[in-house]
């Protein structure tokens, strides 16, 4: 085996490791989130022990300043984070892919107008757009936060979709489809979407991480899901006052948040390697 082949083999092993590590991290959160639907260690809104207890066998990461079990709240936080990620990405995908495809197929001036609008929207931070949407709807709730984040993400998805779709539309097989009598809708469904889907889905995994972080920030600012929804962002905010006396209350939600986002990013990287045929074994 030559050096080049060895390097290739090692790289491939690293790629599958990336995918594996990402799947395990995300998988843990998924299992916990599903578990919360049927079982919780404690009632999340009731006092389960003393205030600000340190970690123990009864309370794995201790209790908060109202004596509620922190681990229970973290578990619910996993569920909320996944709901936010899935919901926001789904909304962002539907709006973004539709807009992106419209721009790609549109006449020159409409495309230019859409592209310029998207560029302006992307210049605003995702969080800022989400805050504006929440503010406009004047009730802070979990579903408002999800819709707000979905709208904020849609600009990024739309821009990517537009670029990818335009590249596909230049291929001869699109012209061949036209001369075969395939309608524009048929071209989108049969040729464009299947060819841009792999790249889009990797991007969705990255957007998922963005959405989870943005929701935590919204909740931290009090614009996310209101109590008793135990979003990790709100747990962080509540632990802020006691960060020196009971640091575990701030560290634990932080670790939970970071592990999910890293897991999702690893999954995205692994997916990219797995579905890119040019990087596979020749």
């Amino acid at each position: 085996m030559t050096a080049a082949a060895e390097t290739q083999a090692v790289e491939r092993r690293q790629h599958s490791l990336t995918l594996y590590a990402g799947a395990v991290l995300v998988g843990i959160h998924v299992v916990i989130a599903l578990l919360t639907l049927v079982w919780l260690p404690y009632d999340p809104s009731a006092m389960a022990g003393g205030r600000l207890e340190p970690p123990s066998w009864l309370h794995w990461v201790g209790t908060d300043r109202l004596g509620r079990d922190l681990f229970t709240q973290l578990m619910i936080g996993s569920r909320i984070a996944l709901m936010v990620g899935v919901g926001a990405v789904a909304i962002g995908a539907v709006i973004g892919v539709t807009l992106g495809l419209l721009a790609a197929f549109a006449s020159r001036w409409l495309d230019d107008a859409l592209a310029a609008t998207l560029d302006i929207l992307i210049a605003f931070p995702t969080l800022l757009i989400a805050m504006l949407v929440v503010a406009a709807s004047d009730t802070a709730s979990l579903s408002t936060a999800i819709v707000a984040l979905g709208i904020a993400l849609s600009a990024i998805v739309a821009r990517l979709t537009r670029i990818l779709a335009k590249r596909v539309l230049l291929m001869d097989y699109i012209t061949a489809a036209r001369t075969s009598g395939t309608s524009w809708l048929g071209i989108v469904l049969i040729h464009v979407l299947p060819n841009i889907w792999p790249t889009l889905s990797v991007n969705f995994a990255l957007q998922f991480g963005l959405a989870v972080i943005a929701e935590a920030s919204l909740s931290y600012l009090g614009l996310g899901a209101p109590p008793p929804n135990a979003s990790w962002g709100r747990l962080l905010q509540e632990a802020q006052g006691t960060v020196y006396t009971a640091p575990i209350g701030a560290i634990a939600p932080g670790v939970a948040l970071v592990s999910l986002v890293i897991g999702m990013n690893l999954l995205a990287d692994g997916l990219r390697e797995a579905i890119d045929p040019t990087r596979q074994a020749r």
């Binding site: 291929m171 012209t175 001369t179 075969s180």
Partner: peptide, 13 residues
Amino acid sequence: VQVVFQDPYSSLD
């Protein structure tokens, strides 16, 4: 009326 293109790598999905 049907057509065949130059680049066989771009003309098949």
